[in-house]
Amino acid sequence: MAESEGGEKTEEPTRKRLDDALKKGDVAKSQELSTWFGLAAATLVVSIFADGTTASLGQTLTRFLASPERIAVDGASLRAMFGGLGLAVAAALALPMLMLAFAGIAGNMVQHPPIVTAEPITPKFSKISPASGFKRIFSVEGLLNFFKGLLKILIVGIVIWMVAWPERTRLATLAESDLAGLLPLLKELSLEVMVASVIVFAAIAIADYLFARHRWRKKLMMSLQEIKDEHKQQEGDPHIKGRIRALRQQRSRKRMMAAVPGATVVIANPTHFAVALKYEAGMNAPMCVAKGVDAIALRIRRVAEEAGVTVIENPPLARSLHAALEIDREIPAEHYKAVAEVIGFVMRRRGGR
């Protein structure tokens, strides 16, 4: 247990730890999953748009091959020709490129919600340090990425061989085929390779994402001491909170003592309780301006006597008022009669009505 409370990270990350990581752009991300989305989108683009895009670009470029001598080479004509060519190519490739861009975004969106942060691009010396770069290359993660790259090359090679080997007879005749027969065959073989790669890479991408998420959560694991420190930051250090509470009580006591000279009467027992009440014409009921027990009660009495405020000793009433009253609150109705008799007595002593 002592070791766990120290530096060993045995606890699941808290919600705050996960949120802080997301704010910094530290998320579980699999590059293989993003690659799979791009490969799947490319396969879809080839299967849907290959014929139409090829035909459109073929029509646009035919005149460059069929009759190049008719192309005007003056400045205005060249600008118009290249402008039209650019628009034609952009129109033919717009939808396929849009699908590929959407696949790239989707590959990241399915792994984590959108995050806007400058943390990953913030300049840091560790990012340009040769020592840090060397450690990254030859770290465990660098070796894992290296072997993953080799595995992908091996898998792609096996997929291409499995698709191409049954077609070896047809591939041998490609050199003798005309262009019209060559393009459909290449498209067919390309699609077979891409579909097979998509199927195989789906398993690789899922496994890599689960592994990346496991490593990410393991990296964010916390020790018991880190959890305690986090609770202290969120709830406040008990020592600091105690100090703040003491300062507030001290200020409140000073304000209370400052109000004692303006009280009408202080009701007390000889040593333990003291309650200072204030009553003026127009008030609904007398109000408590100060109260205390023991040392504070003695201090209230001393301040009252120094200011000429009448102190009445009535132990039962002092105890009940102390228990029932809060500072700056009117006395409850059940004490009206007893307090009225006391204040009436004080006013008669002062010669008031």
Rank of each mutant, 00 (worst) to 15 (best):
K135P: 09
R136S: 10
R136W: 04
R136V: 05
F138T: 02
F138M: 03
V140Q: 11
L143D: 12
L144S: 15
K148N: 01
K148A: 02
G149A: 03
G149S: 08
G149I: 07
L150T: 08
L151K: 06
L151R: 05
K152Q: 04
K152C: 07
I155Q: 00
V156H: 05
V159L: 05
I160A: 12
W161S: 15
M162W: 14
A164S: 11
A164G: 09
W165T: 13
W165R: 14
P166Q: 01
P166T: 00
P166V: 02
E167C: 12
E167V: 14
R168A: 13
R170A: 15
D178M: 02
D178L: 03
L182S: 10
L182I: 09
L182M: 10
L183T: 04
L183Q: 04
P184S: 06
L185I: 13
L185H: 03
L185M: 13
L186C: 13
L186P: 04
K187P: 05
E188P: 05
E188R: 15
L189P: 07
L189R: 06
L189H: 07
L189K: 06
V193L: 05
V193D: 02
V193M: 12
V193T: 09
M194T: 03
M194N: 02
V195F: 07
A196F: 05
A196L: 08
I199F: 08
I199D: 01
F201W: 03
F201Y: 08
A202S: 12
A202W: 04
A203V: 10
I204E: 00
I204S: 00
A205N: 00
A205Q: 02
A207S: 01
A207K: 02
D208A: 02
Y209N: 00
R213E: 01
R213L: 03
H214A: 11
L220H: 01
S223Y: 08
Q225H: 15
Q225G: 09
E226A: 07
E226F: 05
E230Y: 03
H231N: 09
K232C: 06
Q233E: 15
Q233Y: 11
Q233K: 13
E235G: 06
P238L: 14
P238G: 09
H239M: 14
H239F: 12
H239R: 15
I240M: 15
K241E: 05
K241P: 03
K241A: 10
I244D: 07
I244L: 11
R245C: 05
A246I: 12
A246W: 09
L247H: 11
R248Q: 14
R248V: 08
R248W: 13
R248H: 13
Q249H: 08
Q249I: 09
R251D: 12
R253Y: 11
R253N: 12
K254L: 13
K254D: 10
K254G: 08
R255Y: 02
M257K: 05
A258L: 13
A258C: 13
A259P: 06
V260K: 00
A263S: 11
V266H: 00
